[in-house]
Design a protein around this nucleic acid. Structure first.
Ligand code: MN
Ligand code: MN
Ligand code: MN
Ligand code: MN
Lengths: 147, 147
DNA sequence: TACAAAGTTTAGCATAGGCTAACTTATATG
DNA sequence: CATATAAGTTAGCCTATGCTAAACTTTGTA
């Protein structure tokens, strides 16, 4: 039946977007962690649990559990009671993520929002920006530089 | 100590962004559900579990469980084996969400991405856009209408 | 009207990502 | 160098969000 076909097509089209969102969200935490670990290593030579917990606004135990998953995923290495390191994959993910994050944040600034708003909104938005949209943002940015 | 103070301030500043993202994410599913229920009622007079499941790309049982939470939150009403309805709060959330979603999607179009990309990316981005950013997007949109 | 198909619900399971409290290890300081 | 404090870990709990399989209800049709 033509109507059922159309219903199925609509559903498939729409569900694709939600599937992408769910995929984005499962990658999100790992991306934020490795980016933050890289920042801490750059800023002060090492990344410790406590710093991550404070910057993320979560409990220490939460960080420990998450780091275990990231270690299993091959993004992070650690010894008990010692600082946290990134693997090669971890560094790559951190750098890609940081580049993307900066484009999104600067794009929001160029669009005219405050520095606080750009910082806060970009933390969530960055994970849902496709390659195409990122390119469009970068193009806008090059035509509308931040003052 | 001055250094410790600075560290604490940095952490508080950064953690605010992640707290916002976590809050956005806990509101997200409810927003998507009520928006979709409203769409289905508009399009075909009623919203059924199966349609939601197909459009969201999840199993039927997942929808049933989520609807129970939404009912507890006072957004939705339902009788066993019957269609799903929105409460007053549910309608309000659906309409606010749809308005915001449309601004974000049209903004991406105006920025120059394809219709597919705008549809897909906006599904995640919409939940992380603050009132300020939404206003900036609307301003851009009014100055750069979609062809 | 009887029954098959379609739709809905329940039960039971899993993982992610939060939390607190209690415990263990490392480090800084007198 | 002894020990108090800071840092890290473990255990046990919780909720949200996904799944499959099985049971139940409604509905369309022979
Ligand atoms: Mn980031
Ligand atoms: Mn982020
Ligand atoms: Mn959405
Ligand atoms: Mn998100």
């Amino acid at each position: 039946m033509a109507l059922a076909n159309k219903k199925g097509a609509t559903a498939k089209l729409r569900s694709a977007a939600f599937k992408r969102v769910r995929a984005d969200h499962s990658a999100e935490l790992a991306g934020d962690y490795v980016e933050m670990i890289a920042d801490l290593i750059d800023e002060r030579g090492e990344a410790r649990c406590t710093d991550l917990a404070m910057r993320l606004g979560v409990a220490n135990a939460t960080v420990v559990k998450t780091l275990k998953r990231l270690t299993d995923q091959g993004l992070v290495t650690q010894e008990p009671y010692r600082a946290i390191f990134l693997t090669g994959d971890g560094w790559k993910m951190a750098e890609d993520g940081k580049r993307k994050h900066m484009v999104v944040e600067n794009f929001l600034l160029a669009l005219g929002v405050s520095a606080d708003t750009a910082r806060i909104d970009s933390e969530g938005i960055e994970h849902h920006v496709s390659a195409d949209t990122l390119k469009a943002m970068a193009r806008f940015l090059s035509r509308n530089p931040i003052n």
